[in-house]
Design a protein around this nucleic acid. Structure first.
Length: 346
DNA sequence: TACATTTGACCAGG
DNA sequence: CCTGGTCAAATGTA
């Protein structure tokens, strides 16, 4: 199963590379054709599209196959890797292979001021399978795995631990990727929630997510692709690093790492690999204009949104909305020149 | 009845 | 031997 997934990713990567290279060639051709014709809107668009293609190609090229073949640690993770390659041993003895198992991890801290018992729901269903007192820590660490582990062989796991310094903070460490179909694409019968309740819940969650993201959050990436998200709002959290969208944990200091482009009116269009990875049923875009992000720094707090983080956010929202593109309103960028390597620093 | 949580025991790694 | 991660039986809940 793992091998199939690996092959499928690598195959997809090769196909996308090929497609993009072809598209780039055609655009170069189109550009030269337009150069001799009269000035058109298309002439203005071509360099932008071309640039987008080049970035995508560049990023895909850096999507090393090592992500699927070599053990990876994030540096921010004190815990050993536990998932992946468990395919040969999903029946239960996976812990015996602890150190040899590669994993993709991400760490998220969620601030909650709402009296909730723990970090907010991240859109996935988790099943608690253990709790452990951690030496030197005031609060125990809880261990969760994807509810669909047995049904779908999903290997995603997460650990939740309340912060010692600030008991209203929770450290959430995500491990492994979701291979199940849930959260964003819940199918009837997959959840214990009735379908209409699901829709209602999803809608509410999506709205809360957008509002919360826009009004009260700051993020920073930690070393090696692990992301820390500090949220003052109660209703936002990232999915567990695992949407079908390949927000690969590539180092975010690669400034070319964005799939996005800035429109003339400072809308930021985030298109993670376009339709290549997202099975979109609609071509229309969703505008989140009502939820401006220009108050992000209103309290004087800095806001640094790195690529990986925004990609995660994008995947959460795009999957919720079944949309291909996400529009964010970056009005605070008025007057600022658009850097083609816009690294999501806000 | 089915699923989730709790909790003590077991295991691997350092 | 200590610590962290996982298992699985017991228990809780809807």
């Amino acid at each position: 199963m793992e091998n199939n997934t690996r092959m499928s990713y690598l195959d997809k990567r090769a196909l996308i590379l090929n497609e993009l290279a072809q598209a780039k060639e055609l655009l170069v051709q189109l550009e030269s054709d337009l150069a001799v014709a009269t000035s058109t809107n298309g002439q203005l668009l071509v360099p932008i599209i071309l640039s987008s293609c080049e970035k995508s190609l560049s990023m895909l090229s850096r999507m090393k196959s090592e992500a699927f073949t070599e053990p990876q640690t994030t540096g921010s993770n004190e815990s050993p890797c536990l998932v992946n390659d468990c395919d040969s041993d999903l029946s239960g003895n996976s812990y015996k292979k602890r150190k040899t198992i590669p994993t993709w991890t991400e760490q998220v801290s969620v601030c909650e001021h709402t009296g909730l018992e723990g970090p907010v729901d991240d859109g996935y269903s988790w099943r608690k399978y253990g709790e452990k007192e951690i030496f030197g820590a005031t609060y125990p660490r809880s261990y969760y795995r994807c509810t669909h582990k047995s049904a779908q062989g999903c290997l995603a796991m997460k650990q939740v631990q309340r912060s010692d310094e600030d008991s209203s903070m929770f450290g959430v460490t995500y491990r492994g990727t979701h291979t199940c179909i849930q959260a964003a694409h819940l199918l009837p019968g997959q959840s214990q929630i009735k379908p209409d309740q699901q829709d209602e819940k999803r809608q509410k969650k999506t709205q809360e997510t957008i509002i919360s993201f826009a009004t009260n959050c700051h993020m920073k990436t930690r070393d090696s692709g692990a992301a820390q998200v500090v949220l003052g709002a109660p209703s936002f959290s990232f999915p567990s690093a695992s949407t079908p969208i390949p927000c690969i944990a590539e180092e975010s200091d690669n400034n070319n790492n964005n799939f996005s482009s800035m429109t003339h009116d400072n809308h930021f269009v985030i298109s993670p690999f376009s339709s290549s990875f997202i099975s979109s049923t609609t071509s229309e875009t969703n505008s989140f204009s009502p939820y401006r992000m220009n108050n992000l720094e209103g309290d004087g707090q800095y806001s640094t949104l790195e690529y990986d983080d925004l990609c995660e956010f994008t995947s959460a929202v795009t999957s919720e909305l079944d949309s291909q593109d996400l529009y964010l309103d970056f009005d605070f960028l008025h007057g600022a020149s658009y850097d083609s390597n816009f690294p999501f620093h806000m």
